[in-house]
Every structure is written in structure tokens, then in C-alpha cells.
């Protein structure tokens, strides 16, 4: 079908004023994609390595956490990669988690007043950063204690 290139188009992202609520929506998509792919594949690897026995679990730890003193270049690179993955996936999980609660509440019809909506959007970020920080501190504390 021939289309008139000057036809009126419905308003799109570009015309809206940017704000916390817009940010929360975009982040919900991006974090969802991250946990659905990298996050879930790593979780499945961990589960499979537990089921595979002590040796396969050790191999999982070597590649993801700490390859020790005899680490090859690939293993050291992999360890650093998974450190970023751990922080990224952890924050993505919490952000998607809290943002998801916000979406469920909005599905009930609540929180559409401009100020409330903005406050809840900002709250999802505060909650996710706090939760990520707490888990990281807890894990770090344990690792140093061990």
C-alpha cells in the first residue's frame, strides 16, 4: 500500500518530557532482558553444576568467582567478567522486582497522580540500589570472614 510520508503520526517517545517514570519504564525493559538472558543462563549453570557433583561445582567456581593462584588468562578474564555480571544481574533483578511491584500496583489503578507516580518511580531505584548494596555487603562480609 502506498503511504503518504507526510501523514500525521501518533505521538512517540521524543515528544514527552523526560522523567523518573519514563526512566523506570525503560529500565524495566532493559533489566528484564538482562535477567532473562545472562541472569537465567548463569543461574542454570549454577544449578547444573550442583547436580553435576563436587568437581563440576568447583569448575563453576573457578570460572565465575576465583580461579586461585594458578589461574590462566582466560580464567582471570572470566572472573572479572562475572564480577560485573554479578553486580549487574543483582541490581537488574532488584530493579525489575521493585519496578514490577510498582507495575502491579498501577494495574490495580493506583498511583497515576503525577507526584505519586514520580515518587514511586524514584522509590524503585532507591529500593533496588539499597537491596543490591546490602546483599553485596553481606556476601563481602562472609567472604572476608571465611
Amino acid at each position: 500500500m502506498a503511504q503518504n510520508p507526510n501523514r500525521p503520526l501518533s505521538p512517540h517517545l521524543g515528544i514527552y518530557q523526560k522523567g523518573a517514570h519514563m526512566m523506570a519504564s525503560i529500565t524495566h525493559r532493559i533489566t528484564g532482558f538482562v535477567i532473562a538472558t545472562v541472569g537465567m543462563l548463569t543461574l542454570l549453570w549454577w544449578i547444573a553444576s550442583i547436580a553435576g557433583g563436587a568437581e563440576s561445582y568447583a569448575s563453576f567456581q573457578t570460572w565465575t568467582i576465583d580461579a586461585g593462584k594458578e589461574a590462566t588468562g582466560w580464567q582471570t578474564a572470566s572472573n572479572w567478567f562475572f564480577r560485573f555480571v554479578a553486580v549487574g544481574v543483582l541490581w537488574s533483578f532488584f530493579q525489575h522486582f521493585f519496578s514490577g511491584i510498582r507495575h502491579l500496583l498501577m494495574d490495580l489503578g493506583a498511583g497515576y497522580e503525577l507526584k505519586t507516580n514520580r515518587t514511586w518511580a524514584i522509590a524503585t531505584y532507591i529500593a533496588s540500589i539499597t537491596a543490591t548494596g546490602l546483599v553485596l555487603l553481606y556476601v563481602a562480609n562472609r567472604m572476608m570472614g571465611a
Partner: peptide, 28 residues
């Protein structure tokens, strides 16, 4: 499924944090 994820992932996080350590014997 969002509601299911909310409950089940919250359970997983808490359950993991309550483990004494992450050695194979423990998680297995």
C-alpha cells in the same frame, strides 16, 4: 507469573542468604 516470580524469587534470595556457606556439600 509476575506474582509467582515475586514470591518464588524472594524465597530463593532469603533461602540462599540463610545458608551457612556456599560449599558444594552445603548447596547440594
Amino acid at each position: 507469573t509476575a506474582l509467582g516470580n515475586l514470591l518464588l524469587t524472594a524465597w530463593l534470595v532469603i533461602s540462599l542468604l540463610m545458608l551457612p556457606n556456599f560449599q558444594h556439600e552445603t548447596v547440594a
